Amino acid sequence: MADTARPLELWLPDLPRFEPGHPLRAWLARADRAGDAPRGYLAGLASYFECVGGFAPAALTRELLAGDAADAAWLSADPAWIQPDLNGARLLACGQMQLSMDDALDLARPLKPVFGDAGMTLEVSSPDRWHVRLPPDARLPPFASPEQALGEDLAQHLPEGTEGRRWRAILTEVQVLLHQHPLNAQRRELGLPPVNSLWLWGGGSLPVAVRSELAGCVSDDVLLGALAARAGVEVASRTPDAIAAAKSGWLIDLQDLPVADLAGSWWPMLERLSGTTLSLSFASGERWLLRPWHRLRFWRGAGR
């Protein structure tokens, strides 16, 4: 009889990051290659969740964190670290800047008038997630997502055109104010990178509806959690107990973890999942299907 149950899906980091000796490579040697999945973080999320009326990460995360996104359009303005170099400047971090809520509010305070003068409101939704409430008639140029811009020359990813010029001017003023902020001097003394810019991205309004075929998710990702909440999909924080309890049709989000951690502290609980059918989906697009009886393929090597 054919197995019609949906597999338990593991969303994993890019496959090239896994060294030949990584224990997950032994799974791939025994598994069946499946059709490729979309590549990248945002494309991966879009493959799990269908947004009716548009995919707007800023509005979705604002709604999850503050519950007031429905009456406006929003733009993410996440705290960021930009490092100048000989050829310009590069985005080295966005969010996850080790800020407390008090730190975030302190940094945002002098920036609020910059957005206020342009008819917008800067909101600190969490230490890592800041948002701009936009006026009803706001026209947004295309903004690059953090995954597109991280590590790359900033000039390649700044908004362009007439509308882009306005936002570039706002960013310049924001960067000047952050450069002068005393909290950044304190961070440098502590060996922490400065919060010297905001990264603008993900603009739009809440989708009319979000749909998903997932039965549940194990994840600590804010945007995934926001999508799941709109779709009525259960979300459990990423803990050993939650991973052990995940069933067919669930998604276990591991794509942001270091592969060394997956081979270390996380591997014992992942290994226990091999008694069920697993879909191994890598952020780089490759996908395999691992069934319980595949453990009998002991003659296959671990060279994948």
Results as ranks from 00 to 15, higher is better:
residue 142 P to R: 12
residue 142 P to E: 13
residue 142 P to D: 13
residue 142 P to G: 06
residue 143 F to N: 01
residue 144 A to E: 07
residue 144 A to F: 04
residue 145 S to I: 06
residue 145 S to A: 13
residue 145 S to K: 10
residue 145 S to M: 11
residue 145 S to V: 10
residue 147 E to K: 07
residue 147 E to S: 09
residue 147 E to F: 02
residue 147 E to L: 07
residue 147 E to A: 09
residue 148 Q to K: 09
residue 148 Q to T: 09
residue 149 A to Q: 03
residue 150 L to I: 14
residue 150 L to W: 02
residue 150 L to P: 05
residue 151 G to M: 00
residue 152 E to H: 15
residue 153 D to W: 15
residue 153 D to E: 13
residue 153 D to K: 15
residue 154 L to H: 00
residue 154 L to N: 02
residue 154 L to G: 00
residue 155 A to M: 12
residue 155 A to R: 15
residue 155 A to K: 14
residue 156 Q to A: 10
residue 156 Q to V: 05
residue 156 Q to L: 10
residue 157 H to D: 05
residue 157 H to N: 08
residue 157 H to P: 00
residue 157 H to R: 10
residue 158 L to A: 05
residue 158 L to T: 06
residue 158 L to V: 08
residue 158 L to S: 02
residue 158 L to D: 03
residue 158 L to P: 04
residue 158 L to Y: 00
residue 159 P to H: 07
residue 160 E to V: 11
residue 160 E to K: 15
residue 160 E to M: 13
residue 160 E to C: 13
residue 161 G to S: 09
residue 161 G to A: 12
residue 161 G to Y: 08
residue 161 G to N: 10
residue 162 T to M: 14
residue 162 T to H: 15
residue 162 T to N: 14
residue 164 G to A: 03
residue 164 G to L: 07
residue 165 R to F: 09
residue 165 R to Y: 08
residue 166 R to T: 08
residue 166 R to Y: 09
residue 166 R to L: 12
residue 167 W to N: 01
residue 167 W to L: 09
residue 167 W to S: 04
residue 168 R to K: 10
residue 168 R to D: 06
residue 169 A to T: 10
residue 170 I to A: 14
residue 170 I to H: 08
residue 171 L to C: 01
residue 171 L to H: 04
residue 172 T to V: 13
residue 172 T to S: 15
residue 173 E to W: 01
residue 174 V to Q: 01
residue 174 V to H: 00
residue 175 Q to V: 06
residue 176 V to F: 08
residue 177 L to T: 01
residue 178 L to T: 04
residue 179 H to L: 12
residue 180 Q to Y: 11
residue 180 Q to V: 05
residue 180 Q to L: 13
residue 180 Q to G: 12
residue 182 P to L: 06
residue 182 P to N: 03
residue 182 P to T: 03
residue 183 L to S: 00
residue 183 L to T: 00
residue 183 L to K: 05
residue 184 N to W: 02
residue 184 N to S: 05
residue 184 N to I: 07
residue 185 A to G: 13
residue 185 A to W: 07
residue 185 A to N: 11
residue 185 A to T: 09
residue 186 Q to F: 08
residue 186 Q to R: 13
residue 186 Q to L: 12
residue 186 Q to I: 03
residue 187 R to K: 11
residue 187 R to Y: 08
residue 187 R to D: 08
residue 188 R to K: 12
residue 188 R to G: 07
residue 188 R to M: 12
residue 189 E to S: 15
residue 189 E to C: 06
residue 189 E to I: 06
residue 190 L to D: 14
residue 190 L to N: 10
residue 190 L to C: 10
residue 191 G to V: 02
residue 191 G to F: 07
residue 191 G to P: 03
residue 191 G to H: 00
